[in-house]
Every structure is written in C-alpha cells, then in structure tokens.
Amino acid sequence: MNKTKFDPTILIVIGSAVVMIALAGFTSAYAARKSSHYLSQIVDGAMQAPVRKSAWTTLRDGRILGRAVPGKGLAAYVVVARRTGKEYRAIASVDADGSVKKVYPLVSDSDSAFMRRLGVLFDRISQGRAGTDLSPLDSAIEPLIVDMLETITSLERARMEVLDGDR
C-alpha cells in the first residue's frame, strides 16, 4: 500500500503568506489613520482654527477627496482637481444645507492656465459672485465646478439627513 508523505513545506509557505498579509493589513490601517490625521490637520490649519479638531472621512466621490467635520462648527470638504499632471486643491467650508460658505485654496499649479482659472472660477461661482473678466477656458471649466458644488451639496445633505435620523 502506497502511503503519501505529508509535506510540511506548504504549511510553512501558507503560514508565511498569512503573516505577510496580516502585516500588510496592519501597515495599511496605520497609514490610513495617519493620513486622516494629517488631512484633518491640514484643513484645521488652513481654516486657522486648530481648536476645531476635525474628524476626517475619506469620500473619493468625483473630485471630492474627503470631509473634515469638527465637533462644533462648519464641515469642510477637500477638493482635488487633476488635469494632465497638474493639480488644484482647495478646502470648501459648507453650511448645513450644503452651500459653500468660503473657499481656502491649498495648492494650485500656477504654470497651468487651466488650473489658475479653475481656482478663480471655483472661488467666484461658489460664492455666487459675478466677475467681469472672461476667458475662453470658462466654458470648459464651469461644468466641472458646477459638478463639484453639486457633489458637495449632495454629500453634505446626505450627512445631515443621517445626523437628523440619528437624533
């Protein structure tokens, strides 16, 4: 009768793989926590309110990276718009109905005319202000900004509905 020998190598390999996966999972969770802390600090720093002590939530909904909600005060959304390697980042503080109260620019690639104009229009349209200067880029940029503002509004309203439901 043939007796198949048990090979312990496969168990060692599987054990090593499980340890490596667990280590990767732990590292990923740690990095996510640190990243949230860093991003909420960025928001609080830019809004010049270190006492906010916001809690960060990563959303990744279109051009909305995430949301920083303080214990007391207005929620803020971080917007990241990218185009051909260039980037525009800003913080938009919103009131309870989701309309943008103020825009705090973080980074804008100043060598890109598109990003410069995006910054100007995002600030202007979100505040509902009219401007006299026009650019041929406006027709391409305005739909992006409208989309960003609508996304922020719907996210904030959804958050408020959940909060109201909890009360």
């Binding site: 793989a17 490596m20 996966i21 280590l23 990767a24 590292t27 990923s28 740690y30 990095a31 996510a32 640190k34 990243s35």
Partner: peptide, 11 residues
C-alpha cells in the same frame, strides 16, 4: 503584498 506595503509607505 509588497505593492500594498509600498502604497502604505507613500500614504
């Protein structure tokens, strides 16, 4: 697994 760890370092 190494890609995941590299991504964590970048993050």
């Amino acid at each position: 697994v190494t890609v995941s760890m590299a991504a964590s370092v970048v993050r």
